[in-house]
């Protein structure tokens, strides 16, 4: 969206218990089940950071189960 190109507000990088990443406006209370990852900045800075760190996009519980399955095999 056009206004997102010029969005200069501060965002946090957040993640949930499944280690799924997203962004959240810093001026607002982070919702239940989400924690701040530590990075903050403009929308684009936060998204660029997520592009670097979120390398395995499977939910955490699924990753663990698949690791167990491959060890059991």
């Amino acid at each position: 969206m056009a206004d997102e190109d010029t969005d200069e507000r501060t965002y946090y990088v957040v993640l949930n218990d499944e280690e799924q990443y997203s962004i959240w406006l810093a001026e607002r209370e982070v919702p239940a089940g989400w924690t701040r990852e530590g990075t903050e900045g403009t929308r684009q800075e936060c998204l660029d950071h997520i592009d670097r760190v979120w390398t395995d996009m499977r939910p955490l519980s699924l990753r663990r189960r698949m690791e167990q399955a491959s060890q059991g095999a």
């Binding site: 218990d17 499944e18 997203s22 089940g33």
Partner: peptide, 16 residues
Amino acid sequence: TAERFVPDPQAAEPGA
């Protein structure tokens, strides 16, 4: 994904 799939503060389930 992070841009379009965002925290849902209204969800009953935390982390949704």
